[in-house]
Design a binder for these strands. Structure first.
Lengths: 179, 179
DNA sequence: GTCTATAGGGTGATAGAC
DNA sequence: GTCTATCACCCTATAGAC
């Protein structure tokens, strides 16, 4: 793996596990097994480091959008299933960027908004009622919010006494007359 | 207003508008128009300051829960309507605590989880299908997530091209056979 | 290419004046 | 009760050795 990628991986891990405040240059360098000077060679500043993460989100997001559109179960099921973060590369990046966005980083907010807008577009191709499409988008947001709260994708809020994904999908399907 | 309350107000405002990192003792004191020493007289440490905010959340949350149960439109409509943050005292506190929770503060995470659990209970009293109740809870989470992303309750994500609240409520009502 | 050393500024917290 | 002065610590970023 390239040094660049292992640095971004370390940044994601720290943002997910310990939050935005813990993601200092020192901590990222230590987790990536490079020196602080080495980190600053690859990313000249913290802003550049964050921009690197946002570029990764854009790349992974576009790949996922293709998979979403090509999914045999349709974009909606694919979207909701993937909203229960399962530890994929995109999930890890998304949680990390969300942490930055919720910490006030406006670039991260914009990147997330763009991704969400792509999702809504793909959902709307399958579900033509805009209100239903919005409900689905917001439901996915809610699922993501749960994993963001706990930080660790292993213990999402929805695992604590809430119904499982198939039950939620069944409810959503009742909103789609054609399904 | 008591000095204590104006300090907590200042903390909320900074957390909402600028994020967790900006909520330093200095900044809170300046916004509350007290000196840093004065702030530390009322709240001996930053942990005590945060605990003060969590106590306020508990208090406002219990009041809101009563209103939710007594609402003429039923708990579900009340819950979803209030999930689109409208600048109420509870909304401000909730957004602030969510910022802390998403920054990694485990006390704040627990306080939010307790509040969410109360909501689910109240929703379940009206909606007996647990999967539908979960969808409603998550939908509210999604609405909140939008206001958290932008930080300012004045420009929630759902205002940007998504249907308005009545349209969402109509969709949700289709899930409740008795409604 | 990767490292050490250090600058310059902000942080939470304490002691003590008034 | 509220303030000023100050502490030791941690942050991002730079300069320059190897």
């Amino acid at each position: 793996m390239s040094a660049r990628d292992s640095i971004l991986d370390a940044l994601e891990r720290i943002l997910s596990d310990e939050g935005e405040r813990a993601a200092t240059l020192d901590a990222v360098a230590a987790h990536a097994d490079v020196s602080k000077g080495g980190l600053l060679y690859h990313f000249p500043s913290k802003t550049a480091l964050v921009d690197g993460l946002l570029a990764r989100l854009k790349e992974l997001g576009e790949l996922d959008l293709e998979k979403m559109r090509a999914s045999p179960d349709g974009p909606v099921h694919y979207y909701l299933a993937s909203s229960k973060a399962d530890g994929s590369a995109l999930d890890r990046t998304l949680v990390a960027v969300a942490r930055l966005a919720l910490g006030g980083n406006t670039h991260a907010q914009g990147a997330l908004e763009a991704t969400r807008s792509d999702w809504l577009e793909a959902i709307s191709e399958e579900v033509h009622d805009p209100a239903v499409a919005a409900v689905i988008l917001l439901l996915g947001d809610g699922l993501y919010y749960g994993t963001l709260l706990t930080g660790e994708a292993e213990h999402p809020v929805t695992d604590e006494g809430l119904p499982d994904l198939p039950a939620l999908l069944a409810v959503v399907d009742r909103l789609r007359p054609g399904a």
